[in-house]
Amino acid sequence: MANFTLPPLPYAHDALEPYIDATTMQIHHGKHHQAYTDGLNKALGSLDAKFQSMDVVDILKNIDTVPDTARGAVNFHGGGYNNHALFWNNMKKGGGGEPSGELADAIKKAFGSFADFKTKFSQDSTTLQGSGWGWLAKNASGGVQFVTMPNQTSVWTRWSKEKLTPLLGLDVWEHAYYLKYQNKRADYVAAWWNVVNWDEVAKRFKA
């Protein structure tokens, strides 16, 4: 039986105030992320033991090998489980600013400048229809690109064809911002840049 557990937050619920409020963090992590964790365990429970012993990233990379009967649930809950684990670690108290070093160079090469990257990331995440995520991803050539993913579908599911690796993700589901920002998704996106943990993103880029 698969036994994924909810990863702990790497900081206190109120650490990202005033940009992301403590109540939202408590509900988002303790309720929503927990639900994806439980859903993943349940979905994998109906499959062969080989899937139950795999790392979630390996499952997502090979999503096409998951039997049809459970693939949708594994894609949704597995994506939600991993997306949120990355999301928490990609933020920190006192974050924001700009990256440096190799990551900064890759962003400049791909987008022209950090400002242009930030504009594209913000606009495309804000205007994404329905629920989903905006992502900075590393590609097969070692560079970076921006992609949006629907619902909880993980960037890792594009590994077999495109070798995309998720680096920095922004959750634009309403549960991520509605208590504080209501329908003003653009305000939430603008505020989120103040908590981005560029050290963590750079570490993922190097890895």
Rank of each mutant, 00 (worst) to 15 (best):
residue 2 A to G: 11
residue 5 T to S: 13
residue 8 P to H: 12
residue 14 D to I: 07
residue 15 A to M: 11
residue 18 P to R: 11
residue 23 T to Q: 14
residue 27 I to T: 13
residue 27 I to M: 12
residue 29 H to W: 15
residue 30 G to Y: 08
residue 30 G to T: 08
residue 33 H to V: 00
residue 34 Q to M: 11
residue 36 Y to S: 08
residue 36 Y to L: 04
residue 37 T to F: 00
residue 38 D to Y: 00
residue 39 G to W: 02
residue 41 N to A: 04
residue 43 A to Y: 03
residue 43 A to L: 04
residue 43 A to C: 05
residue 44 L to C: 06
residue 46 S to P: 00
residue 46 S to R: 14
residue 46 S to Q: 12
residue 47 L to N: 07
residue 48 D to T: 07
residue 49 A to F: 03
residue 51 F to G: 06
residue 53 S to Q: 14
residue 54 M to S: 11
residue 57 V to A: 09
residue 57 V to P: 02
residue 57 V to W: 00
residue 58 D to V: 00
residue 61 K to G: 00
residue 62 N to I: 02
residue 62 N to W: 00
residue 63 I to D: 01
residue 65 T to A: 11
residue 66 V to A: 02
residue 66 V to P: 00
residue 67 P to S: 05
residue 67 P to Y: 01
residue 68 D to L: 05
residue 68 D to V: 01
residue 69 T to F: 04
residue 71 R to D: 02
residue 72 G to M: 01
residue 75 N to R: 14
residue 77 H to C: 01
residue 77 H to R: 03
residue 77 H to S: 03
residue 78 G to Y: 00
residue 79 G to M: 02
residue 80 G to S: 03
residue 80 G to N: 04
residue 80 G to D: 00
residue 81 Y to M: 02
residue 85 A to H: 12
residue 86 L to W: 02
residue 87 F to I: 04
residue 87 F to M: 08
residue 94 G to W: 05
residue 98 E to Y: 09
residue 100 S to G: 08
residue 100 S to K: 14
residue 100 S to R: 12
residue 100 S to Y: 05
residue 107 I to F: 03
residue 108 K to S: 13
residue 108 K to A: 13
residue 109 K to H: 10
residue 110 A to F: 04
residue 110 A to E: 13
residue 111 F to Q: 09
residue 111 F to R: 11
residue 115 A to W: 00
residue 115 A to R: 11
residue 116 D to Y: 00
residue 118 K to V: 01
residue 119 T to Q: 13
residue 119 T to A: 13
residue 121 F to S: 07
residue 121 F to L: 12
residue 123 Q to A: 13
residue 123 Q to N: 13
residue 127 T to P: 01
residue 133 W to C: 03
residue 133 W to H: 09
residue 134 G to D: 09
residue 134 G to L: 07
residue 137 A to R: 12
residue 138 K to I: 05
residue 138 K to Q: 13
residue 140 A to Y: 05
residue 144 V to C: 11
residue 146 F to E: 12
residue 147 V to H: 11
residue 148 T to P: 05
residue 149 M to K: 15
residue 149 M to Q: 14
residue 150 P to E: 09
residue 155 V to M: 10
residue 156 W to E: 14
residue 157 T to P: 03
residue 159 W to S: 10
residue 160 S to Y: 07
residue 161 K to W: 03
residue 162 E to C: 06
residue 163 K to C: 03
residue 164 L to V: 09
residue 167 L to V: 06
residue 170 L to A: 11
residue 170 L to M: 15
residue 171 D to Q: 04
residue 174 E to M: 11
residue 176 A to P: 03
residue 176 A to S: 15
residue 177 Y to C: 06
residue 177 Y to R: 07
residue 178 Y to Q: 14
residue 178 Y to E: 14
residue 178 Y to S: 12
residue 179 L to K: 14
residue 180 K to A: 10
residue 182 Q to I: 08
residue 183 N to V: 13
residue 188 Y to L: 04
residue 188 Y to N: 06
residue 192 W to P: 01
residue 192 W to I: 04
residue 192 W to G: 01
residue 193 W to Y: 14
residue 193 W to I: 03
residue 194 N to M: 04
residue 195 V to P: 03
residue 196 V to R: 04
residue 200 E to Y: 15
residue 202 A to D: 12
residue 203 K to L: 06
residue 205 F to P: 07
residue 207 A to N: 15
